[in-house]
């Protein structure tokens, strides 16, 4: 299943990736191979099989509504490239 250049552009846009023309060609080919591989699953007859939502037969994992201290402001911001007034500083996005 060959991926069209438009599809590659669309996926790249959603992932906020700037790709060169060469990269686009290369990824189109690689992504197509991956899709073909996954496509093999469709060869199986799954008509009688329940869709799998979760790997483990576990339900209703809940915790009580209790507020506990988290990280400090300093800790939480320690990896941020830019900080101002106790906040992450990011390029303006509208």
């Amino acid at each position: 299943m060959a991926l069209s250049p438009e599809e590659v552009n669309h996926v790249a846009m959603l992932a906020r990736l700037a790709l060169s023309e060469d990269e686009k060609t290369a990824f189109a080919e690689q992504l197509s191979l991956i899709l073909d591989y996954v496509e093999r699953l469709n060869e199986l007859d799954t008509g009688e099989v329940e869709p799998l939502i979760h790997i483990l037969p576990v339900f209703n994992v809940l915790r009580p509504d209790e507020a506990l201290p988290g990280s400090s402001q300093e800790e939480i911001l320690s990896n941020a490239p830019l900080v101002e007034d106790g906040q992450y500083k990011v390029p303006r996005i509208i």
Binding site: G70, Q73, I76, L77, Q87
Partner: peptide, 15 residues
């Protein structure tokens, strides 16, 4: 389990 209280110092109720 971070608190939901309104009006706290920025990034003080984060984990």
């Amino acid at each position: 389990s971070c608190s939901t209280a309104f009006g706290a110092e920025p990034n003080s109720q984060v984990c």
